[in-house]
Simulated assay, not measured.
Amino acid sequence: MTTQPDVINDAPKAPGDKPMPSATLGGERKGSIEQITLLVFIAVPFLALLAAVPLVWGWGVSWLDIALLVFFYYLGCHGITIGFHRHFTHGSFKAKRPLKIALAIAGSMAVEGPLVRWVADHRKHHRFSDAEGDPHSPWRYGETVPALIKGLWWAHIGWMFDEEQTPQEKYAPDLIQDRTLRTISRQFIWWTLLSLALPAVIGGLVTMSWWGAFTGFFWGSLVRVALLHHVTWSINSICHAVGKRPFRSRDRSGNVWWLAVLSCGESWHNLHHADPTSARHGVERGQVDSSARLIRWFELLGWASDVRWPSRSRIDSRRKTGEDGSRQERTTAGAA
């Protein structure tokens, strides 16, 4: 790879340097209107998620509604995991221009924030992981039980309402300089509306009814967004508080197996923090990582190149050693 996204340039700007164009909605401080909008986009889908259980019990759910939920869930999830995270944040592979744009749009449709802001926040997280400066560490308030409970809430949701924002020019200058990616990032609200509207439109057209449009919107938009939000946020909170840690990392990232399928492989979080640029996170036998599988298919199709697949020796070099100096739990590394 020719770039190293995880290295942040702290050098001061020269007097003649031109400021970079604004990359996202809002600046480096979050205003009250933006905070209220954020609250709405968190609360409404969550209320729909709570209402889903009695609705299933009373009215049932159609196969079309399930299909819309699953399709748009994994479209957004892989847009985040493959696009926003492994490609744009960490440079785990190079993508042909059409794939790069498609991943930026798919990630935006997950309704988790503009591309540039998401990447900047995550790069800052890796720089200060579980230490002072980390935007969303669950250990922010200490290690006592009350402090950890408070910290888990902060890492899961609370940090998003903090007025202070990550400096995007400092942490994501490469994305800001790309005009197309900058435009996609600034158009986040339109990708959000498209993401919410499509399930309703499809549901209505397939059933030729307003009820089909409503249930398509309820399951394919609201419930889907809420579920994806909380799975993604669980990587910030749960995966930094519990889980196995077979690899050496300077933080408390852990592997949480029961989140693997829903998180598209992101919950194999310990290896990711031990080797952030690795294109595959689930490297042990039986560790499902659908994001790595799709990256492998992109590579075979010629859409992705320079993929940073973890070799056995590379992973073993990051593995913790037992008291006798032997490597613990051998891996099955390699391409997905």
Results as ranks from 00 to 15, higher is better:
Met1Asp: 08
Met1Tyr: 12
Asp6Phe: 05
Asp6Ser: 03
Asp10Ala: 07
Ala11Leu: 15
Lys13Met: 10
Gly16Arg: 12
Pro19Asn: 04
Pro21Arg: 00
Ala23Gly: 15
Ala23Leu: 09
Ala23Val: 12
Thr24Lys: 14
Glu28Val: 01
Ser32Glu: 11
Gln35Pro: 06
Val40Ala: 15
Phe41Asn: 13
Ala43Val: 15
Val44Ser: 07
Pro45Met: 03
Ala48Asp: 10
Leu49Tyr: 12
Trp59Phe: 08
Ala67Tyr: 08
Tyr73Pro: 10
Leu75Ser: 04
His78Trp: 13
Ile82Glu: 03
Pro98Ser: 08
Ala106His: 03
Val116Phe: 12
Ala120Asp: 05
Asp121Ile: 00
His122Phe: 05
Gly133Tyr: 14
Asp134Leu: 03
Arg140Glu: 08
Tyr141Glu: 10
Glu143Met: 01
Thr144Gln: 07
Ala147Gly: 11
Ala147Val: 08
Ala147Ser: 10
Leu152Ala: 09
Leu152Pro: 04
His156Ile: 09
Ile157Pro: 00
Asp162Gln: 12
Asp162Lys: 10
Glu163Leu: 00
Ala172Arg: 05
Pro173Phe: 01
Leu175His: 07
Ile176Leu: 02
Gln177Cys: 02
Ser195Arg: 09
Leu196Cys: 13
Pro199Cys: 12
Ala200Lys: 12
Ala200Met: 14
Ile202Glu: 08
Gly204Ile: 11
Leu205Ala: 13
Trp210Ile: 01
Trp210Met: 08
Gly212Ser: 07
Phe214Leu: 15
Thr215Ile: 00
Gly220His: 10
Gly220Trp: 00
Leu222Val: 04
Ala226Ile: 00
Leu228Trp: 01
His229Met: 06
Ile238Gly: 03
Cys239Arg: 09
Cys239Gly: 10
Cys239Pro: 05
Gly243Leu: 09
Gly243Pro: 07
Lys244Gly: 14
Arg245Asn: 11
Pro246Thr: 11
Pro246Gln: 02
Phe247Thr: 11
Asp251Phe: 03
Ser253Lys: 12
Gly254Glu: 11
Val256Ser: 05
Trp258Met: 13
Leu259His: 03
Leu262Lys: 02
Cys264Pro: 01
Ser267Leu: 01
Ser267Pro: 02
Ser267Lys: 11
His269Asp: 13
Leu271Trp: 15
His272Tyr: 06
His273Glu: 15
Ala274Gly: 15
Ala274Val: 09
Asp275Gly: 01
Thr277Ser: 08
Ser278Glu: 05
Ala279Phe: 14
Ala279Leu: 15
Gly286Thr: 08
Ser290Lys: 02
Ala292Pro: 05
Leu294Cys: 01
Leu294Trp: 12
Phe298Gln: 05
Phe298Ile: 00
Gly302Ser: 08
Ser305Ala: 09
Arg308Phe: 02
Ser311Ile: 11
Ser317Asp: 15
Arg319Leu: 14
Lys320Ala: 12
Glu323Gln: 11
Ser326Cys: 03
Glu329Ser: 13
Arg330Ser: 08
Thr332Asp: 14
Gly334Cys: 03
Ala335Gln: 13
